[in-house]
């Protein structure tokens, strides 16, 4: 049947049809947007709505969990409202702000020290192969030692002081950060270095004005990720022999089975962690506007 139709005749017919203003093709309809659209980037406002929705979903599940718990043990699974109340009481009546500030100080001080060591060291190890060969085997091994296992040692050395806690956080963060910074430095395109060398740059010039600026956005990313690890180590550091700090408050509450206080403290750490992350991202946008937008 089809074979009998002259393709040219068909073509002509088609052209005639499309020229006829009365017979139009079906109007173009956008395909319906699906929720699970591959690689779809929602708009900024939609992202916020979805994010809030996600939080509400979590709180809803929490509330359900409370009511699903048998009556007898319900106090171990307090509802959201109890935790919020506990959080308010902590701040209003028990000077929780002091503990929060102490914890912030420990995280930031230890992180600053870890960065001061890991960033320059990682950069020079990434620049000079001999230094990397000399130091990497001994330094990278430390990452596999659980930071918590240093607690007894640090207690012997420093006693139950701030230094012991900061040292623990330092150990937990520094060696990971070092490896990340080393990788970030090695990832600097070799053509940048070679271009600079062919322009007559000295080694110092290449390291300071090519490798460092080229690697900095990625290093900053690594730092942002590692300060999150610092927050997760905080409680471990404050469990042993601590009088103050968020972790100490949690341990004390645990002794009296005050689950709402424990949860309030966990929530506080989470909020502080997210705030730190946002701070870092803002700083990143401010410091490296030239760098390719990530995520």
């Amino acid at each position: 049947m089809m074979r009998n139709i002259d393709p040219h005749a068909l073509q002509g017919q088609g052209a005639a049809v499309s020229r006829n203003p009365e017979i139009q093709g079906a109007p173009f309809v956008l395909p319906k947007e699906r929720f699970l659209e591959l690689r779809l980037q929602p708009t900024a406002s939609k992202s916020v709505v979805l994010g809030v929705l996600g939080c509400l979903l979590f709180l809803g599940l929490w509330e359900i969990a409370h009511y699903a718990t048998p009556e007898s043990s319900r106090k171990f699974m307090p509802p959201v409202s109890d935790v919020v109340t506990a959080l308010y009481t902590l701040f209003a009546e028990r000077n929780f702000l002091h503990d929060v500030m102490i914890s912030c100080y420990r995280v930031f001080a230890s992180f600053a020290m870890a960065s001061l060591v890991a960033v320059p060291l990682g950069i020079v190890m990434g620049c000079f192969g001999n230094l990397k060969a000399l130091l990497n085997p001994i330094l990278s091994g430390w990452r596999y030692l659980p930071a918590a296992s240093f607690i007894p040692l640090l207690l012997v050395w420093f006693g139950p002081t701030d230094s012991a806690k900061i040292a623990l956080l330092f150990i937990g963060v520094m060696f990971f950060l070092l490896t990340l910074v080393l990788d970030n430095t090695l990832a600097v395109p070799k053509e940048f270095v070679e271009a600079s060398l062919t322009m007559g740059a000295s080694r110092q010039e290449v390291v300071r004005n090519v490798v460092v600026p080229a690697a900095m956005p990625a290093i900053f990313d690594s730092m942002r990720n590692m300060i999150a690890v610092g927050w997760t180590y905080l409680v471990i550091a404050e469990i042993v022999g601590a009088q103050d700090g968020i972790g100490a408050v949690m341990m004390r509450a645990g002794r009296f089975l005050n689950v709402d206080v424990i949860m309030a403290a966990i929530l506080t750490i989470g909020i502080l962690g997210v705030a730190t992350d946002l701070l870092f991202r803002a700083a990143q946008r401010f410091l490296f506007p030239w760098s390719i937008e990530r995520r």
């Binding site: 053509e191 940048f192 070679e194 062919t198 080229a214 900095m216 030239w290």
Partner: peptide, 15 residues
């Protein structure tokens, strides 16, 4: 610098 080089990869510094 007496022998300037242009590479195939882009070497203009992004910063």
């Amino acid at each position: 610098p007496d022998r300037g080089m242009i590479f195939q990869a882009y070497t203009s510094f992004p910063w």
